[in-house]
Amino acid sequence: MLEALQYEFMRNALIAGLLAAVTCGIIGCYVIVKRMVFISGGVSHASFGGIGLGYFLGITPIVGALFFTIASALGMGLVTRRAKITEDTAIGILWAMGMAVGIIFIGLTPGYPPDLMSYLFGDILIVPPSDIIMMLILAVIIILVVVLLYKEFLALSFDEEFATVVGLPVERLYFLLLILIAFTVVVLIRVVGIILVIALLTIPAATARRFTHDLKKMMLLSILFGGFFTSAGLWLSFELDLASGATIILVSGVTFLASLFLSRLRLMTGVGRG
């Protein structure tokens, strides 16, 4: 690993991975406890529309993705809250529409099609410094908002009805949380790609939840797990010459399954409690 860090692209990759760990560690906890996995999947896939739009307009695709992702997150929030259709139906529709928009825009853009694979499955080794700066800004915003509104988000996640009665602006808080999810998705796209984002949003938080029942501790643990997953995955992909995004996800998934297996084993042998 240390010799790999001589390369600038490896250092950038490591920084990108750690930023991803911080954002998905924090926001992933809300995604898990508020059961927003499906809507997060929708938001991340719809962001492909933004990548396409970015190419078409000739701006940095990730900037296009940022605005498009925020818009589609709010759109999904509005439709699921206001329209009289089932939440998962609405998400399913917007999920596919976002991707379709992306394909259409890329088709309309003259010249060679861009390297779609790196957006769909991530390529942490080619993250440019400009993207790292944007990831850093987004991560700082996420941390600030969560620190300032920690108790409000906790109440929102636990019991929306009660939160409404005590006077919280529940709907606005929910939309704000969706925007933070959109930010996180944009940070993660470079690292693991649109299709694999949902794994980093869920696995570190789900693993952390097995060890604590305090949301703050769960966030910290989840950041640590995320950091371990991204750096271990990065190192493995470098050593074995594998796709970085997919390796990170497999390391995460295997660790999660192992933690499940270990706690079952402990339960069976009666040592401690899971």
Binding site: C29, V33, K151, L154, A155, S157, F158, D159, F162, A163, V166, R209, T212, H213, D214, L215, M218
Partner: peptide
């Protein structure tokens, strides 16, 4: 499984 203690919840 919600990660909140009795104290956290009553505080809400």
């Amino acid at each position: 499984d919600f990660p909140a203690s009795v104290w956290d919840v009553v505080m809400m």
